[in-house]
Simulated assay, not measured.
Amino acid sequence: MTIAIDRKLEELGLTLPEAAAPIAAYVATVEAGGLLHISGQLPFNDGVVMTGRIGEDKDVAYGQDAAQRCALMLVAQIKAALGSLDRVDRIVKLGVFINSAPDFIQQPQVANGASELMLALFGDAGRHARSAVGVPALPRGAAVEIDAIIAVRPAALD
């Protein structure tokens, strides 16, 4: 699966970033009961957090790009936690938080930036449940933050 996803990333003109280190008192991932829980990931563009409020100083397309970059970071965290992407069984759920203007109501369209990437990379295993919530602020002024729950296969015994 790792080689296939690497190929899909290349076809999409995307590069998997290095998994970001936590910025506070938590860990990036926890594997328990066949699930990998991934802490909220921010959107990075050339090492800089994409900031702004969607519907105020940034548009839906910017939000979708930010959501896609969060999803790339989620995949990087999966790879860092599991050693490869071969143990991914299914993307179970994405929690998408969008730094939104008070009257902005297109959170689902913004979240599609992440959802569509998961489908492109993982196929049917990328179909997931999702929440898309507007919030008044995010860490570091980020435009989007996404956390995830991933179903994983047991590690191979050597």
Rank of each mutant, 00 (worst) to 15 (best):
G134W: 04
V133L: 13
H128E: 10
R7L: 14
A21E: 15
A19K: 05
G141F: 09
G40P: 02
D103I: 00
H128C: 11
P154Y: 10
I78P: 00
D65K: 12
L121E: 00
F122W: 03
A21W: 11
P102Q: 07
D59G: 11
I38F: 01
L42R: 05
I105R: 12
A155S: 13
A25I: 12
G141S: 08
K8F: 09
Q68L: 11
Q109G: 00
D103R: 06
R7C: 13
K79M: 08
Q106L: 09
G55T: 03
P136A: 09
K79N: 13
A66K: 00
A156P: 05
L85W: 07
A66D: 01
I23T: 14
C70E: 02
V75N: 03
A148H: 02
P43V: 01
I91F: 08
I38Q: 01
A19N: 10
V88T: 11
L117K: 02
A155M: 10
R140T: 08
L72C: 08
L138V: 06
D57S: 09
L74A: 05
A24G: 13
A143K: 02
N99A: 04
A132W: 02
C70M: 05
V48C: 06
G95Q: 08
I91E: 01
V152K: 08
L72N: 04
G55W: 02
F97C: 06
I150E: 01
V60S: 04
Q106W: 02
V96L: 03
I91S: 02
V144G: 00
I23R: 15
L36C: 05
L74Y: 03
A61K: 12
F104A: 03
V152L: 08
T15I: 14
V88A: 07
V96A: 08
V133A: 08
V48I: 12
L117F: 03
S100V: 02
V133S: 10
V96Q: 01
A25V: 12
I149Y: 06
G13W: 14
N99M: 04
Q106F: 07
